[in-house]
Amino acid sequence: MNCSEYLVDFLIEQGVTDVFGYAGGYIVPFMDALYKRKDEITTHVCYHEQGCALAADGYARTTGKIGVYFTTSGPGAVNGLGGLADAWFDGFPIMGICGNVPTKEMKGFSGIRQNGFQEMDLVSMTRNITKYSVTANTSTGFVDIISRAYNMALLGRKGGVIIDFPLDIQQANIIGR
């Protein structure tokens, strides 16, 4: 089982029945995993990434459940920040899942950009408007990252969380399950 398939299984196990998303190259493995389970979880396609995050926020407000959205990398992920901020300020649980470039193309520990197409440091950008912001940069511990993100959105005062999900990790087999 790869990380994308695990994440979809996890969401279904938690009772998530609807997700809101915008297609893009760096989120395709996750979208494929959603498609395989389309009878159990409905994907609502939005016309803009901001609409995905705001739809997830509206869903959380009206149902009392966690709202889940996905976008592609870079500017696509950044377009969802308004919905995350809304959830943060008003205390509603949403989870953003944002595809990103493969880990080998991401910024290294030295801070030197590796020139990944549409690479963004999403964790730094969302740290002040989320309860938890993380890059899943290895399949080891992925299970814990997903569980923690989901629980953080719902614990205490509810709010948004975001998972930066690199393409190679979406396709990687789960390790440490």
Score class of each variant (00 low, 15 high):
P166V: 12
L34Y: 05
S4D: 05
A87C: 10
I169F: 01
P166M: 05
G111F: 04
F142S: 08
V101P: 14
M1Q: 10
I112R: 13
T130E: 10
K104C: 08
L155F: 06
I129Y: 02
D121A: 05
R127W: 12
D121H: 03
V8P: 02
G67L: 07
N128K: 15
W88I: 01
G176M: 09
E5D: 15
T140S: 04
T43V: 13
G74R: 10
M125Q: 13
L81V: 12
Y59Q: 12
V16Q: 03
I41C: 09
I41S: 02
G141P: 03
F142I: 09
M95T: 01
C46W: 02
P29Q: 05
C3K: 02
Y35S: 12
F20Y: 12
M95C: 14
A53M: 13
S147V: 14
G141M: 02
R37V: 11
I163F: 09
Y69E: 12
A56F: 15
G64H: 01
G176C: 04
P166F: 00
T72C: 10
K65S: 14
M1I: 09
G160D: 13
M95K: 02
G159Y: 08
A60W: 08
F10L: 04
R127L: 13
R113P: 05
T138I: 00
V45L: 14
I174C: 06
R37T: 09
Y22Q: 03
I174V: 11
K158G: 04
I94A: 04
G160C: 12
N79H: 14
R61E: 04
S133F: 11
V68M: 03
